[in-house]
Design a protein around this nucleic acid. Structure first.
Length: 424
DNA sequence: AGTCCACAGGAAGGGCAGGCGA
DNA sequence: TCGCCTGCCCTTCCTGTGGACT
């Protein structure tokens, strides 16, 4: 019988799953039955929310902690247990405010909440106070305690301001039959300082902090998840410890640790192995980093891509201040600059190269002031490293370093070609 | 000590797109 | 549907800055 080109690939996956038993347990969709090292925080959340079981209004709650410290999963866990325990007396609505088209505007968030309560509302068109009315009447009709979990609440406030929180926090005055409480989750502890003091005082009645995990705690979490996710013998304890150590370096980020395990498993599976090796973990770490940067670069507007292309072009040519020392600079300046001996790039050089790239690609050339901001944004996104330095007589500038591997550079170059920023 | 460079980065405002509300 | 509003992107103008040079 004839073998089709894809048969080998599909057949290897169609057989018994050699590596994974239940891959979903390594994603953030999964709510585990036990969350190690978060017992205290979970009890505290439960204590705050428990009065809802008696039909009382519970205090609004703020949960803080850096990425991957178990805030969302703990809140979801307590919420789902509470809903089960209440026998229908408590309703929890969860919204991730960072999701695009969910909470970019006041209207969209309220529409999402109203839909969560089973109401049909148009994507646009209604006045905002109308959508408030629809949402409030929907929750009032249910005659239940409603707990509104707003994950990444700082993103919501950044986009739409704190007015919506003020309105929601005052909702109980308009509701006859339902008690509404808000649980806000944020990575940014200083976020509360940025909102209106009236909103702050009514919202942050209770606060719970989630500290980062250490390597040992991460190892416990990973062991538990790995037991569920992988078939026995697929991964050994030493490799779990390695993942934990790598993630502990990244501020104790459990999400990153779980991603490492999942991607390592996928790499093992793709290479036809039934065991995860140390190399798979290393490859997974590199892949996660590469995917993160390429995703960021792809999502950038063309102007930012052109700035990055200028940096790649200068770096690829070795045309940094270091290598051109003693010759005329691209921006027409003199030669006696002293820094740059380490092969970094500077704003002026990048701008000159950027102008050339824009002209070649038919893009509008923005001002150097704007490019300076775009460089700062790329720095903030972690694609480049930039810091302000002074070269004394020769002015101040940003010292910019590209922290990209060879493979990553090639992939970004391809993105530039696909976006018609660079020629293929 | 004063000068100078090459920017950094803040402030103000224009133009535009999209959302809001009547 | 249309005027108003808001936010975003961008420009222009400006002051500030650190350290080499004079």
């Amino acid at each position: 019988m004839e073998t089709k080109p894809l048969d080998n690939i599909f057949n290897s996956y169609a057989g018994a799953a050699a590596v994974f038993r239940e891959k979903d347990t390594l994603t953030d969709r999964h709510i585990p039955e036990r969350i190690p090292h978060r017992e205290e925080q979970i009890s505290n959340i439960a204590r705050v929310l428990a009065p809802s079981l008696r039909g009382q209004r519970v205090s609004n709650l703020f949960i803080f902690g850096t990425v991957g410290t178990g805030k969302s999963v703990s809140a979801k866990y307590v919420a789902s247990e509470l809903e089960k325990k209440s026998g229908g007396g408590v309703r929890v609505l969860y919204v991730n405010c960072k999701m695009k088209s969910v909470a970019d505007t006041e209207y969209r968030l309220l529409a999402e909440l109203a839909r969560g309560m089973g109401r049909r509302v148009p994507a646009t068109g209604l006045p905002t106070d109308e959508i408030y009315k629809i949402f409030f009447s929907a929750i009032d009709e249910e005659k239940k305690s409603l707990i509104l979990v707003l994950d990444e609440i700082d993103a919501l406030v950044k986009k739409v301001g704190d007015g919506i929180l003020y309105n929601l926090s005052r909702a109980n005055q308009e509701l006859a039959n339902t008690k509404l409480s808000i649980v806000g989750i944020s990575n940014d502890v200083s976020f509360l300082d940025t909102i209106d003091p009236r909103v702050k005082s009514s919202l942050s009645e209770e606060e719970i902090i989630f500290p980062p995990y250490n390597a040992n705690q991460l190892r416990d979490i990973l062991s538990e998840r790995a037991r569920l996710a992988f078939n026995s013998g697929v991964i050994e304890d030493g490799l779990i410890a390695k993942c934990a150590a790598l993630a502990a370096q990244e501020h104790g980020d459990a999400r990153k640790a779980l991603d490492l395990l999942r991607v390592a498993g996928e790499l093992a599976e793709r290479s036809g192995k039934d065991r995860i090796t140390s190399e798979h973990i290393d490859q997974a770490e590199e892949k996660l980093d590469t995917d993160r940067v390429t995703t960021i670069v792809k999502s950038q507007p063309n102007q930012s891509k052109a700035v990055l292309a200028a940096m790649l072009s200068l770096q690829g040519r070795g045309d940094t201040p270091a290598s051109t020392k003693g010759s005329k600079q691209p921006n027409g300046r003199g030669c006696s600059r002293q820094s740059g001996s380490d092969g970094f790039l500077e704003t002026g050089d990048i701008f000159s190269e950027y102008e050339k790239i824009c002209k070649a690609a038919g893009l509008k050339v923005l001002t150097q002031r704007r490019i300076s901001d775009l460089i700062s944004e790329l720095d903030m996104l972690g694609v480049i490293n930039a810091r302000v330095i002074s070269k004394g007589r020769y002015g101040r500038t940003k010292e910019i370093r590209l922290i990209l591997s060879r493979e990553l550079t090639d992939r970004i170059r391809k993105i530039m070609v696909d976006s018609y920023i660079l020629e293929g």
